[in-house]
Amino acid sequence: MILAEIDKCVGCRSCEVACAEKHLGDVDLSKAGEEALLYARRMHVGIAMGGTKPMPIQCRHCEDPTCLFACITGAMHRDPNTGMVLVDEEKCVGCWTCLKMCSFGTIMVDPINHRVLKCDKCYMERPPACVEACPNDVLIVEEVEFVDHDKCIGCGLCESLCLRNAIKLVDTDKGKKSEINQNLCKGCGICASSCPRDAIKMRYFTDEKAHEVIKKLLEVA
C-alpha cells in the first residue's frame, strides 16, 4: 500500500511529475507538448477543500471498488496477480462513468487518448516513482507484514487462514517457512494474530500506531 504522512506534504507535486515521467511511454508528446506530463500522471496532489492542506492522492485499490461497478466495457478489472484494480487502457472508451463513482477522486483523465488512467503502484517495481521522488518522505510503501524466520516453525496455519493467498510456505535453507506476497497482502492481521509462535509482525498498524491515530483524533475533536 502506498501511504502518505500528509502533515509533511508541502504540495510540491514532485510525485505527480515523477509518475508522469514513469508512464510517459504511453503518451504521444508531439500531440500535447509540455502538458503531456500532466496528462500521463496517474495520481495527483489535491488540496483539502476550503483550505490549504495539500495531500497526494493515489488509488486505494479498494476491496469493494465502486469504479468496477461503473465500468461499461469491463476495462476496469481486478488484476489476479496483484489484487490491484487496474484499467485496461485499450478497452477504455472514455465514458467517464468511473470518475464519478470513485469517492476519493483518484481516477485521472487522459484527454489526449480519451481514456482514464489509474495508479498501478508502478506495478511490481519498488519503490514506486512517486515514493522515490518525494523530497519530504511523505510517501511510504510500507511492508505491512513480515515473517521472522527464526520464530516460524512452518506449521502452515497462516496459509490456511489467509483470505487472499498472500502468505505461503516456501522452502528455505532453514526449512519450510512462511513468505508474504506484499502485493496481495492487505494487512488484515489474521495471520499475525493466529501465529502460535508470534512470528508475524504488523509493521505499520502496530498498537503504538493505533494509539497515535486515536490521540490525533482526540486533539482535533
Binding site: 477543500m49 495531500m55 470513485c102 477522486g105 483518484t106
Partner: peptide, 30 residues
C-alpha cells in the same frame, strides 16, 4: 471533483461551509 460531489450527494453530506470551493481546480474532498 466529480467523484467527491457524487459521494456528497449519496451520503447527504452538509457542504455549507465549503460550498464556495466545490468547483475549485485543485479541490479535494477529505
Amino acid at each position: 471533483n466529480v467523484g467527491g460531489i457524487n459521494r456528497f450527494i449519496r451520503k447527504g453530506v452538509p457542504v455549507q461551509k465549503v460550498k464556495d470551493s466545490l468547483l475549485e481546480d485543485k479541490a479535494t474532498f477529505i
